[in-house]
Design a protein around this nucleic acid. Structure first.
Lengths: 333, 333
DNA sequence: GTGAAAGCGCTAACAT
DNA sequence: ATGTTAGCGCTTTCAC
């Protein structure tokens, strides 16, 4: 049982395909009588217009589809962001193609190529570490791009980020204010922009308190829960172990918590909030981002571009919240 | 700067559009020389084939796009599922349109209509409470549908669920085994199939231990963290309050935990695992589902259908894991 | 108010 | 190995 086309509807209703087209598109300039007959035929056949064919011919360009490309859709942070983008799209009658990159430039290219081949009207991306020259073509052809969470190096597009550096400085400053002087830093891949920024914030805070950086206390490139645990073990085995830790994302924080006794024998401040963070012992002090705000800001920028905005690229920096719950204090080991 | 078409590439390469088509589609039956010239022109113009036009004409049907419709993409459970579906799709060269329903039948219809208008090759849906007769048409037209997490009433399609009822019975049985006889039940909207099943499991367990249901201990329709807290307050204000609680999903569990002292003065078993559940005091005992397995099972079924499988609809029931961590024991209040 | 013709960008089915 | 013709399902344009 093949799908009916306008021709089929036209035959049943006894009109021309053009009249069906008019009715299906709102019915302007069609007499109520024929409109009713066409509507009847549509219902009878279960006709639904093929939007791909429609968008192909329609002079008013656009597929009412946007693409969202994140690092990992399973990460609650990006999931919240995705939902927020989807809501904004739905409100405007758009649908969203979604893809994860795993932070692999190759998969990012594949996903974006698949999206632009389907002629999405715009892209919201969390760029990977790799270069993004391949975006120049679709952008020149009129597909706007917005970066969110981190900028794409060398790509002049609207970008929505948070104040990573200042927020990290604030968090580490909190630890310093509690008297900690040996503060461990646990970070994800250093190639990721947010991680560089947060590390800079860590250094800023140390410098502001006149404390020299101790490279022994710094671990980058922690890609998993497991690697975070291992790194922590290394820090605690030091002759002079840290009395406090700054954890640079939620995955690392979870790894750290899992490796520690209960109650945690080290002060901790984490970047990114966790669901039950306030029920831990002690309750976890964190830098909290708002992924919903990130997503809706990115969507607003994108739809403005789709709407014809040709102004210079904007950079939106959203503020984090510093949530003090107790885990930043001093404790004995 | 408009997008180049095959015609443009053909002109630059000095060949016919058909030759360009052949090259772009793999280059079978084209001499290496012309293929090179065409490739050169493609690069020069930044040409990318329009897949919408391609799929329109191509006799081999299909848009290499599937639709995924979940309750709420921001819910970590569905986010994990979505990522799993996306991975399966990506592996097969498909992209995925994603939408949230918020459990509103109207939004579900809108989203699915938008997807079928774009001629997705298949749909994976977490059906809302409403009827699903509107799916009959696209199904008859050849768009396969797979339900996941819960079945769609009256719709004979492949369905992937977990053993909700038995798992809930197991969880409540665990509480009974610890000597609890007054066990509170906290559930989400009773119209949702999983909630009915879990409640039945609760009753099964009580019956197996010869305990009569006490309606005072049962609260359904808890739609939020806040409502869960309020319901719990009601239970604890009872003349004979429950000594144990069975919480029917993660949102409710979080509400309950937030409302309780620390350490929790009531035994708790929750349906769905939570990230830091093992770091709570006491560590939370839960029924744990595997959203990744749900997603990949659904995707496998869908792609089998897309591949031409016309066999009778299958029902796949995945098993949950019961994770005993300690919160199910007896304690004083 | 309605329809006929043309064409969006591409490929199937024939040519040559 | 390459080109021509026709047409996917729809809308634009221009007739009536």
């Amino acid at each position: 049982m093949k799908r009916p086309t306008m021709k089929d509807v036209a035959r049943v209703a006894g009109v021309s395909p053009m009249t069906v087209s008019r009715v299906v598109s709102g019915g302007a300039g069609v007499s109520p009588g024929t409109a009713a007959r066409v509507g009847q035929a549509v219902r009878e056949l279960g006709y639904q217009r093929n939007d791909n064919a429609r968008h192909l011919r329609q002079k008013n360009p656009g597929t009412s589809t946007i693409g969202l490309v994140v690092d990992d859709l399973a990460n609650p942070f990006y999931a919240l962001m995705a939902r927020s983008v989807e809501d904004e799209a739905h409100r405007r009658g758009y649908v969203v193609l979604v893809g994860s990159t795993n932070d692999e430039p190759r998969r990012e290219r594949e996903v974006i190529a698949a999206f632009t081949a389907r002629r999405v009207d715009g892209l919201i991306i969390v760029p990977t570490i790799g270069g993004h020259g391949f975006l120049k073509r679709p952008m020149a052809a009129g597909t706007p791009v917005v970066c969110v969470d981190r900028p794409a190096e060398g790509l002049a597009v609207d970008t929505v980020t948070v104040d990573n550096r200042a927020a990290a400085e604030r968090g580490v400053g909190h630890l310093l204010g509690h008297g900690h002087t040996r503060i461990g830093y646990l970070g994800d891949r250093f190639g990721i922009w947010t991680q560089q920024e947060r590390y800079r914030g860590y250094l800023d805070a140390l410098a502001a308190h006149g404390i020299a950086e101790d490279p022994d206390l710094v671990r980058h490139e922690l890609r998993s829960h497991h690697e975070a645990r291992a790194a922590l073990a290394g820090l605690r085995a030091l002759p002079e172990p840290p009395t406090a830790l700054f954890s640079s994302n939620d995955l690392i924080t979870m790894g750290v918590l899992d490796a520690l006794d209960h109650p945690a024998p080290v002060a901790i401040v984490g970047f990114d909030d966790l669901p039950l963070a306030d029920r831990l012992d002690p309750p976890l002090t964190v830098v909290s981002q708002d992924p919903v705000a990130l997503g809706s800001a990115a969507a607003d920028l994108l739809f403005a571009r789709i709407g014809g905005d040709r102004s210079a690229p904007r950079s939106v920096i959203l503020l984090t919240r510093f949530v003090v719950r107790g885990s930043g204090g001093f404790r004995t080991r």
